[in-house]
């Protein structure tokens, strides 16, 4: 459980980090909180020649309202986000979801940006970003760009990030008075990666719901929207929404849950989260 030898560079700016990535290609990895990467290094599942530490880059640890969005810098830690009044007010989905992520020691170091960039299929943050319809800010050799969450998660640990790209921040739409959020997951133990999880947002339209976004995690190679179920919920038919999951989702079983169990629990979660979406805000 000792990592293979690697070189270490501390980037002072995004440009420096991107330049280092461009120079070393696949042999370099960015490290922020390190909560997934260090374990992989120690198990020698990953053996980069160079670690580029981005923790010293200033300006990436901030949470701020900019225009009609909430900007969360790439280095914002889970604990920081959980305690931030701006997050509680403008992104209550994150406030609901973050306590489910691992344990306090991990939340103290782990970053929201790192989780989105890593795109673990069982992680909470990619699904939250997808449910929120957030934008992901990226800097690369050709400059800065923004990618919508719907276009960001491409497959198993595969995202719109190129080999020399760095995720610099997340832009979340501000929570409005008619917005509803829901979050629930099943895990064998508190803090484990979910067997099945669901992050959701919607807009209240009278007694019904519009703009429903259901983002499942641990139900495929990456966070995935259940579009059939979204439409059924918008039509006000919860049973049809649960039935639609059969076509929306195609999980593979693993040692903690068979495919049948995952599909069954996905339906249970949908009923639970649909209840949350229908609740009046406090």
């Amino acid at each position: 459980m000792k990592p293979a030898t690697f070189a270490y560079a501390r980037a002072q700016s995004v440009a420096e980090a991107v330049a280092a990535l461009a120079a070393h290609g696949d042999e370099a990895r960015l490290i922020a909180g390190g909560q997934s990467l260090v374990a992989m290094l120690n198990m020698r599942l990953s053996a980069p020649r160079l670690l580029i530490d981005i923790n010293a880059i200033s300006g990436l640890s901030e949470i701020a309202v900019e225009g009609d969005g909430l900007r969360i810098g790439a280095l914002v830690r889970y604990t920081q986000a959980l305690r931030a009044p701006l997050v509680a007010r403008h992104a209550p989905l994150l406030t609901r979801a973050i306590p489910h992520i691992a344990h306090a020691a991990i939340r103290n170091r782990g970053t929201l940006g790192g989780s989105v960039a890593f795109a673990d299929p069982a992680a909470e943050m990619p699904a939250c970003i997808l449910a929120l319809g957030a934008d992901i800010a990226i800097s690369g050799p050709d400059g800065a760009r923004v990618v919508a969450a719907d276009d960001f998660f491409l497959g198993l640990y595969e995202t719109a990030l190129g080999p020399a790209d760095m995720l610099t921040g997340l832009n979340l739409p501000l929570h409005g008075p008619d917005r509803r959020v829901g979050f629930a997951e099943f895990a064998r133990r508190h803090g484990d990666y979910a067997m099945v999880g669901l992050a959701a947002t919607a807009t209240a339209r009278g007694a019904g719901l519009g703009d429903v976004r259901l983002a499942y995690f641990s139900m495929g190679p990456c966070a995935v929207r259940a579009r059939g179920a979204e439409q059924a919920l918008e039509a006000g038919d919860l049973d049809a929404a649960v039935a639609a999951l059969e076509a929306d989702l195609d999980p593979t079983g693993d040692i903690h849950a068979s495919r049948d169990t995952k599909m069954h629990l996905a339906g249970v979660l949908l009923r639970r989260v649909a209840g949350q979406l229908s609740e009046q805000p406090q």
Partner: peptide, 23 residues
């Protein structure tokens, strides 16, 4: 958990679930 070839499938603290205080 072993597969049919005798490979242990969960030989790490992430996948081998010890009882934790929360539960």
């Amino acid at each position: 958990v072993y597969d049919a070839e005798g490979q242990m499938q969960n030989a790490s603290m992430a996948d081998y679930l010890v009882p934790m205080a929360c539960e």
